[in-house]
């Protein structure tokens, strides 16, 4: 936690500056691995160079602001809802990766997000998500003939 009081170092701001510097380095490292160049005009390295240098300069700029304590005031963070939502997304990805199917994946994401916003009826929300997922699946596979990820359940439909 920090406030806008000048002179106080904002650690988060320094982390951001470091992140930008790492990103700049990553781009520079990647561009030095490019083997081919254009025969005429500018090569593929020019733009990454501009971006990399720009990011490095901005890293300095952000660091200066952080050292002056210039970042806006922030409140205490409640991590629980964030973990719930991102967890729901991870569960969705896992469901698709391991062929559990689109409908259960959607149901889990719906229920997890809803819980993150303070609802305590997980089973009801799971059911709502399930119905929504089924409707979406039918809409896509039957009407638009687009193939959504399939699991045992989707194959039955």
């Amino acid at each position: 936690m920090s406030t806008r009081t000048p002179g106080r170092v904002d650690k988060a701001g320094l982390v951001i500056a470091l992140f930008l510097l790492v990103l700049a380095g990553l781009i520079w490292q990647d561009l030095s691995g490019l083997q081919l160049s254009s025969v005429y005009g500018l090569g593929p390295k020019a733009m990454p160079m501009v971006v990399s240098i720009g990011l490095a300069i901005l890293a300095v700029g952000n660091a200066v602001i952080a050292l002056q304590g210039g970042l806006p005031k922030r409140e205490r963070l409640d991590w629980k809802p964030i973990v719930l939502i991102l967890g729901g997304l991870v569960a969705l990805i896992a469901c698709i990766k391991f062929d559990v199917g689109f409908i259960p994946a959607t149901a889990i994401l719906f229920a997890a997000t809803s819980a993150a916003f303070g609802r305590r009826a997980f089973i009801t929300d799971l059911l709502i998500g399930f119905v929504a997922g089924t409707v979406i699946f039918l809409l896509f596979s039957k009407l638009l003939t687009l193939s959504l990820p399939m699991g045992p359940l989707e194959r039955l439909i």
Partner: peptide, 30 residues
């Protein structure tokens, strides 16, 4: 509110899955 945001997330992931059904794409969304 819980349902509205849950719906938004389902909506957002569904669009991604339909356009490009890949785990990498979903991970990028996250």
């Amino acid at each position: 509110q819980p349902w509205l945001y849950a719906g938004i997330l389902v909506f957002a992931t569904m669009g991604t899955i339909a356009a490009k059904p890949s785990i990498v794409e979903l991970a990028m969304l996250g």
